[in-house]
Design a protein around this nucleic acid. Structure first.
Lengths: 188, 188
DNA sequence: TGACGAATGTCAGTCGCTGACGTTAATTAC
DNA sequence: GTAATTAACGTCAGCGACTGACATTCGTCA
């Protein structure tokens, strides 16, 4: 075989390493390609741009959430259904915490990458909204709840990533939901 | 005087027009500068990049929200304080609806610009969080509520922009908050 | 008048990214 | 088993976003 296997994976690994070593901005796509033993042009065949290499998996993430939300018990309201979706991610990330931490360190240091992450979360919200619509929510409620659920996810994820002990994202999610309910309850 | 006045303003106007006429991606910074009677280099002295020209005002927006949230009555809980901040934006945008619509048409057509908009909203959330902290909220609650408030703002703003009749953003915000409270209330 | 600073211009250069075209290797068809 | 097809990669040329360095013009103020 002329080519080493899994060129795409090698590019992802090389990019992660170089972004950690030198920072995102001072790393060149040519450098990444070189470390992966490929050409720059090939990098752009695998990834739309220099940032996308840090966001693999495409829409598997969104689909995971959407499906789990859809599969939630019928008696669940939209918010609980949405959270059933988010908890599926919690399970998914359980084994990948250290990778997620490395990745997040890079993203936190780079506004460009934060933008990309935010738009990914936005598409999660959109997908989630569709699920809630299918479950019978009205359009305004589905949009609102999806957006709010993702907002809660953001804060929970951040807490989970920063935690010293290896905590459970699902647990954090549940307590955030609890806090949300308290904060939205009308003060009596 | 050698230079026409308000170069920056001319660049903003030229950019808005060209983005509307030809789309964001097929518009060149050189074109914008030319229409404004300036050089490309000068464009980049006024704006960090090609997108930023659509987001003028810097952080006046965030400050407006943060201050209004801070000025809310002491007896308000964090969520209501946050909404007091958002309503200040509602007032601010009242007279600028048609401009906001043009701008939003461009943004909606361009993922790159959506990314930028999202990170602006993120910095609003951060600023808002600081206000809530000053009001005495705990860190987790402030973060959560700020994030959720901005999420509600996003859906309200979208509704307001799309409305056929010239509705009031503040009104939309209030009804969204009401919907949020219903959605988070435990189903009895 | 002359020194200084603010806004702009010019130029060269790097880097992200794309289109066009050619090459190699595995697979599939016959 | 050979030929056609396809998938993955390489090379090259080129555009456009963005930056650094240096020069210029104009208003201002001593």
């Amino acid at each position: 075989m002329r080519w080493q296997p899994d060129g795409r994976g090698r590019l992802e690994l090389a990019a992660l390493e170089l972004y950690l070593e030198q920072g995102f901005e001072s790393t060149t796509v040519a450098e990444i390609a070189e470390r992966a033993g490929l050409s720059e042009r090939t990098f752009f065949r695998h990834f739309a741009d220099k940032r996308e290499v840090l966001f693999p998996g495409g829409d598997t993430f969104e689909n995971l959430i959407a499906e789990a939300a859809l599969a939630a018990p019928v008696e669940f309201g939209p918010l609980d259904a949405a959270f059933a979706g988010l908890e599926a991610v919690g399970v998914f990330l359980k084994e990948r915490r250290s990778f997620a931490q490395k990745r997040q360190r890079i993203i936190s240091a780079t506004p460009e990458l934060q933008e990309r992450e935010l738009i990914k979360l936005q598409s999660v919200a959109t997908k989630l909204q569709e699920s809630l619509l299918e479950r019978g929510s009205s359009a305004p409620v589905a949009g609102l709840v999806a957006e709010v659920a993702v907002a809660v996810f953001k804060t929970s994820f951040e807490t989970w990533i920063r935690a010293k002990n290896t905590s459970d994202l699902t647990t954090v999610l549940r307590s955030s939901l609890q806090e949300l309910r308290e904060a939205t309850a009308l003060s009596q």
